[in-house]
Design a protein around this nucleic acid. Sequence first.
DNA 1: GTAGACCTTGACCCCGACGTCAACGCCAGC
DNA 2: GCTGGCGTTGACGTCGGGGTCAAGGTCTAC
Lengths: 150, 150
Amino acid sequence: MRIGELARKAGTTTRTLRYYEARGLLPARRGENGYRRYDEEDLRLLHQIRLLQDFGFELEETRPFVDCLRAGHPSGDSCPASLDVYRRKLDELDAVIERLRQVREQMGAQLARAELEASAQQPPAPRCELTQAPSGRREQERGPDDDAVE
Amino acid sequence: MRIGELARKAGTTTRTLRYYEARGLLPARRGENGYRRYDEEDLRLLHQIRLLQDFGFELEETRPFVDCLRAGHPSGDSCPASLDVYRRKLDELDAVIERLRQVREQMGAQLARAELEASAQQPPAPRCELTQAPSGRREQERGPDDDAVE
DNA sequence: GTAGACCTTGACCCCGACGTCAACGCCAGC
DNA sequence: GCTGGCGTTGACGTCGGGGTCAAGGTCTAC
């Protein structure tokens, strides 16, 4: 199959596939006309990459898994190198989560303190003019925003 | 004081201070020679910025806090606009933490499964190597080299 | 034989928070 | 007056994972 079809099947874009190829992660054979040609095996590799990306892996970190699959193993994590990456990522993940948890805690305390002080000042009349909304209005739809975990 | 001194006192760099000024976040007065001049108030503002940055705020998100301080309030979070940012960040934080927690869980399960499979295969002889599998090569032989990145 | 869907490479753009020159001005001490 | 350490602006680089043209080649259907 050609690049467009593979992209559709994997739910990604042709630009992304060319990018992966440029990184040496998913090289393609070429037909006589110079078009890239892929097969089902490539689709599997690509699925592996996307899965790990969704987990927050950097592209380079998916390489051991892809190599493992390409070497003929049943799954990308059948090789020691992949397991090492898993373990490292788990450690990282634990560290990040813990840090965020602490930040969350401190911020929650700050907010509580600030709200308390505000309510001690504000009761009679609205004063602080650096705002527009008088109170809650917090739905703020969540757009295509997401990760950015450090 | 001049830029270098402020940077040292706040544990940051002159480049950073110029960047903040370019963003309009921490404008500086100028001496006759064109040098930036700062005072203790600026140091306070800067501390507020750095604190929030450490919390993972983007620069723009610190602006309400800085404005609040500059408006004469005792602390950066004495203003409703700042509290709104707190609340929004807390929500974001909760969402991110939860997502990471789930990823951590899935990955832990993957690792456990992979380790189990590995131990079921490995005992007799070491197998899992990153060598070519004897299985079918892909259609159309390639040039004088199978790519080996690294 | 031609439209239009697909492919090719190359090149520049984006975000955030700066780092890192380069080339020059200002000022203090010796 | 010269060196060295400050300061100034401006411009480009970084990192990841692509997006978005632009200018052209190919293939397929009608």
